[in-house]
Design a protein around this nucleic acid. Sequence first.
RNA 1: GGGCGUGUAGCUCAGGUGGUUAGAGCGUUACGUUGACAUCGUAAAGGUCGCAGGUUCGAGUCCUGCCACGCCCACCA
Length: 868
Amino acid sequence: MAYKENNLPDNQYNSEEIENRCIAFWDAENIYAYDKNASRENTFCIDTPPPTVSGSLHIGHIFSFTQTDITARFQRMSGKSVFYPIGWDDNGLPTERRVQNYYNIACNPNLPYDPDFKPVHKEKDETKRKEVSRKNFIEACQMLTQEDEQIFEQVFRRIGHSYDWSLKYTTISPEAIKVSQKSFLDLYAKNKVVSIEAPTMWDVTFKSAVAQAEVEDREVEGFFHDIKFQVQGSDETFIISTTRPELLPACLAIVANPEDERYKKLFGKNAIVPLFDISVPILPAEHADKDKGTGIMMVCTFGDAADVAWWKNSGLPIKQIIGIDGRIIDVDYGVGPFSSLNPDKAKENFAKIKGMTVKQAKETIFALLRQDGALQGEPRKRIHSVKFYEKGSLPLEFVSSRQWFIKLLEEKNRMLDAGNKINWVPEHMYHRYEEWTKGLNQDWCISRQRFFGVPFPVWYHLDEKGNPDYNNPILASEKQLPVDPMSDTPIGFNEEQRNKPNGFIGDCDIMDTWATSSLTPQIAMYFAPKNVPLALPFDIRPQAHDIIRTWAFYTIAKALLHENKIPWKKILISGFILDPDRKKMSKSKGNVVTPLNLIEKHSSDAVRYWAAKARLGIDTAFEEQIMTQGRKLVVKLFNAAKFVLAIVANSNLASEKNYKTYIKNDLDKAWLAKLANTAKNAQKAFLNDDYASALDLTETRFWDFCDNYLEIVKKRAYSQDNNSAVASLMLSLDTFIKLFAPFCPFITEEIYQIRSWKDKQDISVHKEAFPDDASFENLVDNEQLYDEVVNIIAEIRKAKTNANKPLKTPVKSLQIYTTEAMKDLLLKNQTDIINVGQIENNGIIYIVADKLDVKNIVLDMNFISEKK
RNA sequence: GGGCGUGUAGCUCAGGUGGUUAGAGCGUUACGUUGACAUCGUAAAGGUCGCAGGUUCGAGUCCUGCCACGCCCACCA
């Protein structure tokens, strides 16, 4: 397709027009298509982060994704076939939460499917959420994510990311589900995944298990309650300080440090739990700290991870009183673990908290303790940190349930090895990975009691009484994938046998979203054309540092367990965008500076410039002024190009493709030597993953071009003998648009397309080779000449400015001190100096010296600018 | 408590292997507008390079200690 009807430069820079033109052109010409015929060595594979589609795009996304795009574009210009897929991570809890709020619905898996239900967006709906079936809920999730994904795609296209959109995937797509389920089956076959019933960290709001990596600590206000316990069969008492009095009925035992003299005498005896009169043993335990609280504590099922750890070795029964919804469940005080010495009293007190939330139960128990006289003094306030699910609002509880776990604890050393083989940029980010891996203390819980995600490809036999046999799951065969055990039937059964004795049930859980996202390289390859030379390890994984312990860690784990390989050779860690107060930028403020607003205000190229200015791994404060600076650069590029094109149009070389042969002038060659150096250094910086330096170098040289070189050759370019100057300007412009192309793909493409010396082979600047030494062969010489001329001109300008005179004020005379060798060269090329400095005939006196100096500049003080 | 990072001009940031008067952009001030410039250019002011020691002929750069800030992890009755 033709890039533009009329290839003349526009009068003014119009970012939106150029952006729309480029996007349509790139799309039509498939500029960024992955070349499947390239060999693996000639392919650059990127494991792109699939953004979570659960709301709006944040400026932080634009920041880091653009940095990756710059790298991709450089690699493409270096001759690589770039495998640059994009996907949307749409499965998982964030999506469910957004869907619940957006449509004001909630999933109730017990309801039947309603084919007529259509979700409608509800703005600030205060009414109770409408309950819908699992299938209706999943459909609502699909509907909203598709809408969100279109918006994401528009923004990513507008900012000029060079993905191959034909490789687009979503993590909830049947194909991704297939890859993810296959991964599960492979791990099962390798005995790396198990289902066990055990106390697990549990979010009561989302009613789901969570993994260690999704947990964060938060400082909350709590109260120490001092509670008096009586030793059974004696008058002795002791005080326990606890922040969780509501767990009193779940108390299993009392423990103190074995070395604690105060309590040694109690070991072997029993204590009476107040209010419930349950007799519990008093035991020594290493994890009890003499100096904390009163030195003696209760172990409950389950107050925290220490309780879980201790319980595992204790042989004592579980007393679970907190249900999956965070409310107190019913228990029997007559028999079993809750047996009370005074069942009526226990039942009466327990009835008062049954069904309550943890918070309500805490208050009720507090009041009961006070009434009972077991409470000593007033509760004491304390700030302590408590574990939360990162997306939750209530503290995590430990709830015993059956969950699938990937056995990562036994892989710690191999995980450390694998991490070590990967090149971390910046290097110190490896420490985060290392520390997290070393500190791992639980296997990876991958089951979630949610709905919108990848189902486990698993069913269970039901025995004659209808009880499931979890130890011998029925696995889907690979040919069946993707499979939903809640609607698909296992091989060898018919649907009639579902939920019937001697029949089967489906596993109703779904997988942790990371269980699928950790397969992004495999998913991307699955979506690629068949029989292409793609394989692990990919070349790079770009990502931010907050998800090293999740995305990076889990992806490394999967590649290791499945293929015994590292997933990528290099991981590039981007920094964060911070608020001006240096906190991580909040979503609320993100509303003010949405990516699209910024693009419209400053242009895509300018926003990209802003992203490119930041170094990898470094958090930076958001500063919009950098986009303003970027826009100035883009406008300058546009204007300089227009100027050069106008000069070329008036020359003999207007459509001369082989213009380079006309470059003969010493000063032009000296300038080109500077430019060639810049290209070489920019390339070096790129190869070092330092795109920011590449931009700095290019930008500096470009302003030098505008401020100095263009001014120097202007007169000569308009003169009769102008071929060398014009050709040099052509080469300079061609070089600059290639150097800037990875950063500013729009303006550079625009200039590339409207050049008069473009021919049929010139498809796109983004298909051109990045400038190297060969581009300047035999065209560079004596760069020192250029430096000297620029210095001389600077001195002349300074003299004029200091005299408060216009720059076109004529110079009557000046003395140039320079070396013997340079003197001849300057003399030979002095026309340019005379032109730009407005120096009168025979005004320059050369004096041989050790180094350059300019002295005794005499201005024509009678000169008056015409305008005044 | 452990680990990592950062601290350079009013602001945002650059400153391989230690080497002459420490840089850029923005902002401020003054002047100008030269054949492209929704402007652009020229120039000026502005820094005890967090603090204190040490190594060295020489330290923003290397070493030690301290301070401040940020992030990650662990503990948390």
